[in-house]
């Protein structure tokens, strides 16, 4: 799309969209929202960028080999976080880190949940982007 207004507006809004998505991912355990919703926002930011600036431009920002890795390792991160519990001599996915868990409203209060959310968010964002790219490619 060659429209000047659209390109400017997307260029201006994109950082804020991404920031908001990351905020939602990070604060999933203290407020409504979470890794899935936040990851969607981040991914939709990239999708909006590619619809306005063209698929080729979008693919330079998120190349395929990067999305393959983030998709797979985002999920692996979940299992690795689960293994933290086992290394501490507790059950799988036990939520024990060195920080205080359970102070309402604090970012660290979720313990491992915040960290798991980061992995899930990365995975959801890259999956949305991959889905968009594959569908657009198949059409061409």
């Amino acid at each position: 799309m060659k429209d000047f207004v659209l390109r400017r507006v997307v260029a201006l809004l994109l950082p804020f969209i991404q920031m908001f998505g990351i905020y939602v991912i990070m604060h999933g355990h203290t407020s409504p929202g979470g890794a899935f919703a936040g990851g969607m926002v981040v991914g939709l930011g990239v999708i909006g960028f590619s619809t306005v600036f063209g698929i080729e431009q979008g693919k330079t920002k998120m190349p395929e080999h990067v999305t393959t890795i983030t998709e797979s390792y985002g999920t692996l991160w979940y299992i690795l976080m689960g293994l933290v519990g086992i290394f501490k001599g507790l059950p799988f996915l036990a939520n024990k880190l060195a920080v205080d868990v359970g102070v309402p409203g604090e970012l660290t209060s979720g313990g491992l949940i915040g960290l798991i959310g980061v992995g899930v968010g990365i995975r959801v964002a890259s999956t949305m982007v991959t889905l968009f790219f594959t569908m657009m490619e198949e059409e061409a």
């Binding site: 080999h65 393959t68 890795i69 998709e71 797979s72 390792y73 999920t75 692996l76 299992i79």
Partner: peptide
Amino acid sequence: LFVSFLLSP
């Protein structure tokens, strides 16, 4: 599951 997510890259 672990190995399956390890595979695709």
